[in-house]
Design a protein around this nucleic acid. Structure first.
Lengths: 260, 260
DNA sequence: CGGATGCTTCGGTGCTCGCCAAAACGTTCG
DNA sequence: CGAACGTTTTGGCGAGCACCGAAGCATCCG
């Protein structure tokens, strides 16, 4: 009798994501890359024809977009908002009462570092966000993401182009709740610029066929202190080698490229 | 072959919401109130026995919680995070390419003002948020929600208790993208305190059996200027009668209680 | 051209899952 | 007590939909 339309709206969107094959497709695309239909079929674990039907539905709903190139058709997420929706739903996994183990230690590489549409997530991204916060370049408390003046100058000096798309309605610095770490990482235009910079500087390299990222020695070093040598010290001016590195980055779990 | 677990996780959560009956149940609960199983059955449009099965699944997944009282069982959303997930999914409705009309003028009352778990949404909430921003009490740009010092003092003077639960991890001022207005309204602890205050001051009254809120004359007056007489003027100090009221609040659509 | 590759459309099959009615359970009231 | 009410459990039914293989279009290659 009441808000009937709302329920149907909600259900159509959710049921679209609620199929295992389609969910696998969306997960495969959530790294931000564009994949061909055949690759997606392998990711989804179903036949090519079935996959084709799923892709048509997803395109029709506006969740993904297609780009035809030669005899291939490349699919990718339609917008950052879709990635956001997926992350939000992933974060709901631990709502279950007690039985669900804490998201499990599964997929160690994914937990360590991954791309989330066009920015970074995982341990490395969270550590980076917190390091930037400690340095006084961004302010992340209470889900409020702002870039300080010092931060703006610093990013400019690095040649980090986060002004692109300024006119668009996309937020500059969105705080995402990282679903594996349950702490914040940086999204928005700044997050996208950070990932682009990290790739250019070879801090991280994409692992083919996955949204996982491999953190290089350079990336680890950048986080450890090299990047922030010019930082504004907030509390003390002591040295900050590995001891200031977030615990997660020192543990056995961190995947670090051996040279290069 | 890759992140298989992620896809299943995503699909199980989404398919749970992806059923029309369950989605209707969640929508009915998204106002923040607790409803008995029978009422939910009517909202869902299915029989009591079917509803019972749905409710069991939702409880099992941790999306809703149950409180048994006498021979009734009252169900409500398990946490604000669930409401957030639902709103995010609702916001995905307009992703569809062109065919979808802009969320439609359906449910005028809901578009005007509604409760969203424990805070307000809709035209009135958006107008309120923007008025608070103009007054310099909060800062909402770029999805970053912060309360200014002037705002903190102002809210304290009003007796608006947004410090409750400060120790918890819940954000103080979360910026929600309003799915009907596509602009920001205020959630988080401040949002909850604002709704409580608005109800106490009779700015809004809950419409029974719905998440819609009716805006009273007092509520309209508060927004129009009475509330902000002590505001810090940002640009000019001119008068601000109806002309500064957001357009949406002046139109024919706004439902205003006649003397209450 | 003809054959290979990538993707989509078409028909047909099977199974999951939402649905209801009836019965069982628990609570409140007369 | 027993009757009335609210809710859950059980059993059986039916429809929707995901799935596959084969055939139909495109595109690139020799």
């Amino acid at each position: 009798m009441t808000n009937f339309a709302s329920g149907i709206t909600l259900a159509t969107t959710a049921s679209l994501i609620g199929d295992v094959a389609r969910a696998n497709i969306l997960c495969a695309l959530s790294g931000g890359g564009a994949l061909a239909a055949g690759e997606l079929a392998r990711h989804a674990g179903v036949s090519a024809s079935t996959t084709s039907g799923h892709l048509a539905k997803l395109v029709d709903a506006g969740l993904i977009s297609v780009l035809k190139q030669g005899r291939h058709r490349y699919y990718r997420l339609a917008s950052p908002r879709v990635a956001e929706i997926l992350e939000t739903l992933m974060g709901a996994a631990d709502l279950g009462p007690t039985r669900h183990r804490p998201v499990g230690p599964r997929d160690e590489a994914l937990r360590n570092a991954r791309s989330c549409y066009d920015h970074m997530a995982g341990r490395y991204a969270v550590a980076l966000a917190e390091a930037l916060e400690r340095a006084g370049f961004v302010h992340l408390s209470d889900e409020a993401g702002t870039v300080t003046e010092a931060g703006s100058a610093f990013f400019d000096r690095l040649g980090l182009d986060f002004h692109a798309g300024q006119a668009s309605r996309r937020p500059l610095c969105r705080c995402c709740l990282d679903w594996s770490e349950r702490r914040f990482h940086i999204g928005g235009r700044l997050g996208a610029a950070l990932l682009a910079y990290a790739e250019r500087e070879k801090w991280v390299v994409r692992l083919p066929g996955s949204r996982a990222l491999r953190v290089t020695r350079a990336g680890e070093a950048a986080l450890a202190g090299g990047l922030f040598e010019c930082r504004q010290v907030t509390s003390d001016a002591g040295s900050l080698p590995a001891s200031r590195l977030p615990r997660a980055m020192r543990g056995r779990g961190a995947i670090v490229d051996r040279g290069g």
